[in-house]
Write a protein that binds this DNA or RNA. Sequence first.
DNA 1: TTGAAAGCGCTAACAA
DNA 2: TTGTTAGCGCTTTCAA
Lengths: 332, 332
Amino acid sequence: MRLIDVARSAGVSTMTASRVMRGEPTVAVASRDAVHAAAARLGYVPNQVAGSLRSQRSGIIAVIVPTLTGSVFAETVRGITDTFDAYDYQLMIGESSYDIEREEKVIAALVQRRPDAIIIAGVKHTPQARSLLRSAGVPVAEIWDQTTHPIDIIVGFSNFQAAYDMTRGLLDKGYRRLALATGPVIPGNRAGERTEGYLAALKDAGIHPGPSIVVPYYNFLDSSLKGGNVVADFLRDNSSIDCLFCTNELIAIGAVVACGRRGVKVPGDVAIAGFGDVEAASIITPDLTTVKIRGFEMGRRAAEILARRLLGETSEPEIVDVGYELKWRSSA
Amino acid sequence: MRLIDVARSAGVSTMTASRVMRGEPTVAVASRDAVHAAAARLGYVPNQVAGSLRSQRSGIIAVIVPTLTGSVFAETVRGITDTFDAYDYQLMIGESSYDIEREEKVIAALVQRRPDAIIIAGVKHTPQARSLLRSAGVPVAEIWDQTTHPIDIIVGFSNFQAAYDMTRGLLDKGYRRLALATGPVIPGNRAGERTEGYLAALKDAGIHPGPSIVVPYYNFLDSSLKGGNVVADFLRDNSSIDCLFCTNELIAIGAVVACGRRGVKVPGDVAIAGFGDVEAASIITPDLTTVKIRGFEMGRRAAEILARRLLGETSEPEIVDVGYELKWRSSA
DNA sequence: TTGAAAGCGCTAACAA
DNA sequence: TTGTTAGCGCTTTCAA
């Protein structure tokens, strides 16, 4: 069942049928009706692979995020979908598992599908990955971060500044023996930038940083539960700590829950602050002091800029800072 | 930059280059090396759109879920990804927002991309959607449910039986004035089947069903917070209720949290049971009694069966029941 | 407003 | 082990 079958059945040429199927306005009403009727009668399903090859537009937006599990990036994806749905684009989502080597493979796999645009979380990529993104010949939006050397479009916030401000706020609340819990740090990644913001705030205040713990990345559930236990052990072994700053919301939530189960009072024995504001943060007891990130907003803004590019309305690189917000709740 | 450029640069024919790029073993080592070197030198990125058109295999698995936000279906997607990653398939994910009309549009959009297989949550579709799925000419796996009339493969569990068992268990615990909170019910959808299981268990026990409340579907966060408040109001207006069964985990979590904020004791004043077991269920206070669903498992099993189909190893329809598990925790 | 011709970049099928 | 030929199904381009 091909377009030519529909065209014959409608008594027109393939080109007229093609124009009707794509909604071009330059077709006589009679032809249009005949083609629609024939398509419906025959149950015709257009082959977009063929169309994409010829038109050099795939209608696909490639999206690369660390993970879909855990609602943090799922919100961003929803922001992207919200915008692109109206334009008949489909998302093709790749997961990097917070690993830039794996990210490179994912990018390579997606670029072969000739997406019309690429959205990628983070600004830290392998050289080969940067090269693939640059030479893909389509607009690229890096999100969730800021950098002085964007590939093209950037829609994010300063992870350094957000961590700096939160640390500063904790110091203002009177906490002095701060400790840090973070996921894996690679220089230049988000956990690394947040760590640096934390250290810079301490340095500027003349406070010596306390101990740190690095929690491996599991998946969502395990990062909360296993990670929480690891952190609770760490707090037990370092009982002088009065405040723990977690660069990762899952670790923070896990720590609050693990402390609750062990009878460690939060914030009485130790205050805990997170980074990310997933919905569980406002549901646990005590509710979590954290940095609220605008995940949905970043997805939506990036998608809007790309949509404009794809319609040919603009073409300069753009830099958008969506900011962040400190949420002071009960845990610190 | 096309395959022919690589071939020329390597001094072989396009076909030999094509064979090398696709990893066919029937190529001389010298040719293989020459092609790989040329591809690397030129920065060649294969055009999989062209390859798909000719080979009639897209390397795409279409996945249709109600939503990605909220980790319930994200776990299922992870199960699918886990399996298909090894075979170089990419997922193309569509969201139906729990709306079968929208689902039909999403299916139509995805089928045009000629996926090699389709995985769809639920067994309740519009007639047109069923027709699109059947005539797509590829294996289709319906998941998250059971039915006597599957399209092809089915990997799920009985929502009716799970709700029946949970209700039965609540009765065994001594609760007698039960009420129901559910998301939108369409005959044949999962919320509907769960509602019927609940009603059947009450009927078999000779207990008259109490009042019910239908909570609209918002997004994850709002379903928990807004939905929770709606349910808490409902409980206040119906104070004789001693146990609330929620066919939806987000509503249950929201209700527990909203009750906590209003000083309603759970399970003292009213017991609450959920359905789904998202991770937040074990983190809130009190932790939630619920039906644990094997979301990851369903994704993995469906993907494995499809992978075997795609390799040509099997071809009969398959029916897999992954079951469920009652989790008795503090809330009921 | 319509149609004919050409070709997007790759791989199946066949032949050598 | 390699190469030639043809064509996947559509849309661009150009002409009428």
